[in-house]
Amino acid sequence: MTDAPVTLGEAPLATAALALGDDALVLSHRLGEWAGHAPVLEEEVALANIALDLLGQARTLLSLAGDEDELAYLREERSFRNAQLVEQPNGDFARTIARQLYFSVHQHLLYGQLAAGDGPFAPLAGKAVKEVAYHRDHAEHWTLRLGDGTEESHARMQRALDALWRYTGELFEPVEGLSVDWTALREGWLAAVTEVVERATLKLPDGPQSGAWTAGAGRQGIHTEPFGRMLAEMQHLHRSHPGASW
């Protein structure tokens, strides 16, 4: 193990594996931060289990791009290729659920497409799409409960949907190495998310999803301010004790 920055593979396969793998890794870490803090025990367990599914996916994906541990623990912020949505802080429970809703519907549809193809990601996607169906189900039910719940939960859920909206456009930017119909993905996502949000008596924001002042350069290695601190916590043990094992 060295402290030298890890170099990234440049092949399209590595690019795509990093994009998908970093999405899964970073969201997994964020969800893991709820351990010990979730509002009820059942949710603590649920969020940790979703995090575990994502971590398993991340391990498989990062292994396609290189050494999973080096990639996770020794890369600098600018080398991460995750979308900015998944690095956003947990916030309150509504904020976490909005992030889960936006991301899990996206991941479910994306992996569905990848699983139907015969590319290098088909085996993993075929497996993960079934796991993600439960993540999506979890997020949709909570969106309904919070949106159609009390005045307070409704207001918080609406705020969360609004705050994270600007990070959603990036999810539909084509990723090199992935054979995906991005237009169909965006339309499918918008229809599915709109349906749930309206059923929850909430309103999908009408502002831009990307461009101008909005976010969306995570795939190019540009990240938001909270991500650096998240990485510092995630990586510090490995960096302080290189090569340490249980």
Binding site: E42, E43, V45, A46, A48, N49, I50, L52, D53, E131, Y134, D137, H138, H141
Partner: peptide, 12 residues
């Protein structure tokens, strides 16, 4: 009661 139980493969 909960979509995820003691392990990811179980619901409560």
């Amino acid at each position: 009661l909960s979509r995820f139980s003691s392990t990811a493969c179980k619901a409560l």
